[in-house]
Simulated assay, not measured.
Amino acid sequence: MQPTLLILAAGMASRYGSLKQIQEFGPSGETIIDYSIYDAISAGFGKIVFIIRENFAAEFKEIFEPKLKGRVAVDYVYQEMDAFVGDHAVPADRSKPWGTAHAILCAKNAINEPFAVINADDFYGTNAFVKMAAFLNNDCKSDVYSVVGYELGKTISEHGSVSRGVCAVNAAGNLSAINERTKIYKNSEQIVYEEADGSTHPLSPDTPVSMNFWGFHPSVFNLSQDLFNEFLDKNLANPKSEFFIPIVADEFIRRNLGQVKVLPTSAKWFGVTYKEDAPGVQASLSELVKNGEYPDNLWK
Rank of each mutant, 00 (worst) to 15 (best):
A9G: 02
A13L: 13
L19I: 12
I22R: 12
P27V: 04
S28L: 03
S42K: 15
A43L: 01
E54N: 15
A57T: 05
E59H: 01
E59Y: 01
I63M: 06
F64C: 07
E65F: 04
E65D: 14
E65M: 07
R71I: 08
R71G: 05
A73H: 04
Y78V: 07
D82A: 15
F84E: 12
D93F: 11
R94S: 09
S95W: 15
P97T: 00
W98T: 00
I111T: 06
E113Y: 05
E113T: 15
I118K: 11
F123I: 02
T126N: 03
F129K: 06
V130Q: 11
N137P: 00
N137L: 11
C140I: 06
K141P: 00
Y150C: 11
T155D: 08
S157P: 06
E158C: 07
H159K: 13
V166P: 06
A168I: 11
N170M: 05
A177Y: 06
A177L: 12
I178T: 09
E180K: 13
R181Q: 14
R181Y: 04
I184G: 01
V192E: 05
Y193S: 00
Y193W: 13
E195Y: 00
G198Y: 09
P205F: 05
S210Q: 12
S210M: 10
F213Q: 14
W214Y: 13
F216M: 12
V220L: 02
V220W: 01
F221H: 03
N222V: 04
N229A: 12
F231N: 03
L232F: 06
E251F: 02
I253D: 08
L257W: 01
P279Y: 09
Q282C: 15
S286G: 14
L288I: 02
V289M: 10
N291E: 14
N291F: 09
Y294P: 08
K300T: 04
